[in-house]
Computed example of a mutant assay.
Amino acid sequence: MEAGALLRSISWIPIRHLPRRCLPIFPRSLRASSDVQGGYRGPKPKKDWVADWVSNNDDTVRSLPIYVGGLSLLAVLFNRSISGIAPVADASSSQSRADLLTLGLAVTNVLTGLVWLSIRPKSISVVNPQGVTCQRIHYDLPDYVVSELLWIWESLSVATCCRSLIIVYQDNCVLQIGVAAESSINSGDPIIVDTTKLVQGSLYESVMKSGSQSYLANLSLYPARSELPFLPSNTQAVILQPLGDKGIAVIGGDTIRGFTTSDQAWITLIAEKLDSTLSKYSNSLTLATQNKV
């Protein structure tokens, strides 16, 4: 049985019910030509020892102003006690004025250290999506379109923080792969992927109207996340990428601000290629209104 016919025969079936040998395998890495020819012989990048030390001793660096300010206060008091000057500040004395200035600088250092310790950047960690792993492909797609869709998924899942991919074309879902919300997957027969909220929502409308990519770097901050019920509930970031004027790709990530600028530009190029591929068959695809097999 050919690969395309096999893929169509298993379309819209959760991936957990499929034997591993049925899934296409793509190479996850390529060996550089320099490795074959004996390795890289160019100049080696210099190591920034200061930056490395600061990054590895963050707490010490943040506490450093407190130590400096505290030592400065002790030094002023010690100097005042052995200098023979009256302990009461005297505005006419140059030593008193210098001591007051030093005390002000020392207190400023201490306060700066306390602020640095209290204000810390929030650590961003990878989140394990809460959902069910699935693979759903529309049954009426040509063989090489199916291969291109699977290649796009494999590339995004390996090179970026993408963990969920939904492709909607002509208001119908042609691909759902990766981790999906448990409410959108049935352990029995495949069910319909509900894209009604997406197509009729403000997110879809704004993206299609602008014709440009929309990046929701922290999905939890956007009330419109309810328009994406097919994504895991703890999806951290989402890219909404238009496919021409007929479709949209929804890419869910597992890390807040996990998609870099390079990732966004690359996804835009992939979308242009995918739109060109799907548009050739948009008139011949028998996309059922409810995406049934």
Rank of each mutant, 00 (worst) to 15 (best):
S72C: 07
W266R: 10
Y169V: 01
Q200W: 03
T112Y: 03
T235R: 09
L101Y: 07
S220V: 15
S164R: 03
H17I: 04
Y281A: 01
Q200N: 06
A224H: 14
D90E: 08
R62G: 10
N128Q: 12
G247R: 08
L141N: 04
N186V: 05
S279A: 13
S282T: 02
G42H: 07
Y67R: 07
S212P: 07
S262T: 12
T286L: 06
Y215M: 01
W53E: 00
E148N: 10
V61K: 01
I66V: 06
I137G: 07
A288D: 14
R41K: 15
L156Y: 13
Y169M: 04
D48G: 02
L141K: 03
T108S: 05
A86T: 15
V207H: 11
T260F: 06
Y215V: 00
R31K: 11
Y139H: 05
P14L: 13
W53G: 00
S94V: 09
T235F: 08
T286P: 03
F26M: 07
L285D: 00
V107S: 02
I25R: 14
Y139N: 03
L156V: 07
I256F: 13
S220W: 14
S83C: 05
K122A: 13
G113F: 01
S214K: 14
D189R: 15
N172L: 02
A237N: 09
T277E: 00
P223N: 15
W12T: 06
V36S: 12
T60Y: 13
C134H: 12
T277P: 00
S233I: 08
G131Q: 04
S55Y: 05
I66C: 03
S212C: 14
A91M: 11
A86R: 14
W151E: 13
L216W: 02
T133E: 14
S183G: 06
A89Y: 08
S9M: 15
S276P: 00
L285R: 00
M1N: 08
L77T: 03
D99E: 12
L73V: 10
A180D: 10
G258H: 10
G244D: 01
A181I: 07
V107D: 02
